[in-house]
Amino acid sequence: MSDSTNLSSASVVEIQRLSRSFGAKRALHEVSLSIPRGGVFGLIGGNGAGKTTLIKHIMGMHYAQSGSVRVFGMDPVAHPVEVLGRIGYMSEERDIPNWMRVTEIMNYTQTFYPAWDTKYAEELREMFDLDPKQRIRNLSRGQAARVCLLLALAHRPELLVLDEPSSGLDPVVRRDILAAIVRTIADEGRTVIFSSHLLDEVERLADRVAMIHDGQIILHDRLDTIKESFHRFTLRFEQPFNEAPLILGTIERKGAGHEWTYFCRGDRDQLIQAARTLQAEIVQETLLSLDDIFVCNVTRS
């Protein structure tokens, strides 16, 4: 046991060259990922890019066809009790037994988690305004999502895994979910992994971001670093071009005649230097949101 805790202090999740296909369909291809302890890890990607498949591997719901998955230094498939006991999980489907009452599902779920904090669970229940006597099938979609969130949080998990937590929910419930993420990492050493296609949520909360496309990780770094390494310049050239000249690190260029907009990756000063050598004037420089970066990276590949 002490061995595994030592291992896990470095990173909570360690994935190495993980590949998975369902029949002929390739869902993940050679994914390697290391998620450090503490902070928020945002997993972004389009629909069907492989986000959920990756998360299911972390939860031990898929075995690794090739490659390896370690959570807290253990194989989640071989050690479900040890691993899952330290994870709070909310699935995209939010499929909880809907014949139970709110208090029943709290009591039932509590049994599985020795670390369950009854007082905290009760606090959350009151904060979310959940009637303990209601059956889950009679709750609104938002309230049901709050129940799922409560169940994922009440044992103060070391790792909180949220798969598309806010899809299909109103802004009030989304706020609750985001606030829960903030509260979770405000405690030292706790980690949150969440996938989303609402990129402004990721931009607000994530320390690190992995962008997954077509089963492959196409970008993985600290959010700050990612934001600093993508730039968009509008250059004005002295003579018109049919096809604008390439600058080092160009991912995409658009425009016509004298004015061309470049979407580049790299060091800002170097890019400016490169533009000068082409005798172009920088007419405009815009900062990029994660959304812009995502769209450009995905449409290019």
């Binding site: 990492i185 909360l205 320390d207």
Partner: peptide
């Protein structure tokens, strides 16, 4: 952080 819904590190 909770008010703005932003990462505390930020």
């Amino acid at each position: 952080a909770e008010q703005l819904l932003v990462n505390p590190n930020t």
